[in-house]
Amino acid sequence: MIDLKNVSRIYRIGSTKVYALNKANLHIDEGEFVSIIGPSGSGKSTLMNIVGCLDTADSGEYLLDDVPIEDYTENELARIRNQKIGFVFQSFNLINKLTAEENVELPLIYQRVGKAERKARVAEALERVDLSKRARHLPSELSGGQQQRVAIARAIVTRPSLILGDEPTGNLDSRTTEEIMGIFHDLHRQGNTIVLITHDQEVAAQASRIVHIRDGKLSEVGV
């Protein structure tokens, strides 16, 4: 479902070119649980941005669900992110003015889902991360782990083909990390495709497949 072919992304700092991604190839099948691990500055975030359709490659080809991404306009990319990808970020990235419920509801509003269905799906998503009781709380009233669970609920509420985690446990203590990883495992068991980007060996090791990234180059490590 994810197919990166010779993808490069180049940043220009002054007159020097920096290859954040250098002819990277990556194939991920549906239902896989893959972690991408690498030190900071290795091109992790760039890879995540491209896979998550937040950014486009300078060269090479990216197929998401067999559809090439390059030709899309900004608005079409937004629609793909909305429908196919669920993001879980390191810093949660919830909107502080909105309650947990409203945060989870937001992608459905952008999908123009009707109100009754929205309510039902939000309730279901919050139930799956075990946060139904906190639905009406603001992010500031929730702990880090709870906020990240809200973020996961927001990611899964659209039933995306891909759940993309960018250091989802980076801001959490080890106990909460376990809790969040537990949710990812559950989601994986339920058939979701999960890609986690991390620099934490322990977290990475929980995936069924680990991909290393260093200086913009990807290398597979046998399972």
């Binding site: 998550g52 937040l54 900004e74 608005n75 937004a78 629609r79 992110r81 909305n82 429908q83 993001f87 990235n93 919830l94 909107i95 937001l106 992608p107 952008y110 999908q111 927001r154 659209t158």
Partner: peptide, 15 residues
């Protein structure tokens, strides 16, 4: 940042 979040989860320019 809020704009970034909204865009990441699928808000288009028009929205």
């Amino acid at each position: 940042r809020e704009i970034g979040i909204r865009k990441a989860i699928g808000a288009g320019r028009g929205v």
